[in-house]
């Protein structure tokens, strides 16, 4: 018995199956891939479901035999949801509403983060505490007076309603970006800045010429995340932009209503009524720009945190 267990062939077999110190075994590898595929499926399945439903014709939708493979590629849903979403206009609005505040928010966060990272002054812990508080305060605790003020100033519905807070470092999740910049400036070596100071450079000049270029990864990562978060944010945009600019997610949230305005249920044929397929095509059109951006920029997402060192020590 012992001879079989410790026979060289069985030893090798065991090493292939269960691994050794040098490599993983087949069993572990298979289990790893099975798990990864299963979890990947969890994320992909809704998207796949969404996409497949969105290209189903009304006939396919009613046919219980058709589950994952539609009988034809039907683009009528997209044509209609494109109209209902008023796509070119809302897409442009979404881009503007997410890119403009993000740029400002990133820039201001870097200035504030630099101040916190490079200067000694009284009250710094208080500033950090207040930063944390701005992060956790639910938006509905501050949104109504802001909305009323904007209304009095005639700014309700204007992109400025979102741009102004971003300009003063109070944009959506600004605290996170300030901390990202704090981390990346704190870990930069001080030598260059000190020698520039000895040469008589002003603080602002040192920041622009030396600190900003060396924190480039933090700028890119902050800008990307900020854009994505502004894009997906619907609570603030709905309140501040209502009656003015309409973004893509805002239009999606009143999709059914907008659809029935364009295609009144009593007037259009049964095949043109609002159904799952049209809804799904609308949702897909809504996330399509983000998906495109993600696949183009995915390297920055994947490596972002490592580069900026947000986790700190």
């Amino acid at each position: 018995m012992t001879r079989i267990i410790h026979h060289p062939t069985t030893d090798r077999l065991r090493s292939i199956l269960f691994g050794s110190r040098a490599h993983r075994g087949v069993v572990f590898t298979i289990a790893l891939y099975a798990l990864l595929v299963a979890i990947g499926f969890v994320y992909l399945q809704p998207l796949l479901f969404m996409f497949i439903t969105s290209i189903k014709s009304p006939g396919d939708l009613l046919n219980p035999m058709v589950q994952w493979v539609p009988t034809e590629l039907y683009l009528g849903n997209y044509a209609r949801s494109f109209r209902v979403l008023n796509y070119p206009q809302t897409l442009l609005a979404s881009v503007l509403i997410s890119v403009a505040p993000s740029l400002l928010q990133t820039l201001v966060a870097s200035v504030v983060g630099y101040g916190l990272a490079r200067y000694r002054f009284w009250g710094k812990p208080i500033v950090f505490l207040l930063l944390l508080i701005t992060f956790i305060i639910p938006p509905q605790n501050t949104v109504i007076p802001q909305m009323l003020t904007y209304r009095n100033l005639g700014l309700l519905g204007s992109p400025l309603a979102l741009i102004l807070p971003a300009l003063l470092g109070q944009g959506y999740r600004s605290a996170i970006f300030i901390l990202i910049f704090y981390q990346s400036f704190v870990s930069l070596p001080k030598v260059l800045e000190e020698s520039a100071r000895l040469d008589g450079a002003t603080d602002l000049r040192i920041f622009i010429a030396i600190a900003m270029p060396s924190a480039l990864p933090a700028y890119i990562v902050s800008f990307i995340f900020s854009t994505v978060w502004y894009w997906n944010e619907t609570f603030l945009t709905t309140i501040f932009l209502e009656g003015g600019v309409t973004t893509l997610p805002m239009q999606l949230s009143r999709f059914a209503q907008a659809y029935e305005n364009l295609y009144p249920p009593g007037v259009v044929s049964i095949f043109e009524r609002l159904n799952e397929a049209v809804k799904m095509s609308g949702t897909f059109l809504n996330i399509l720009p983000l998906l495109v951006m993600y696949f183009v920029l995915q390297r920055w997402f994947v490596e972002s945190v490592e580069m900026t060192g947000i986790t700190g020590e």
Binding site: T234, L290, F301
Partner: peptide, 8 residues
């Protein structure tokens, strides 16, 4: 990270 938003 990219997709999670209210309406979606």
């Amino acid at each position: 990270i990219v997709i999670t938003s209210g309406p979606v």
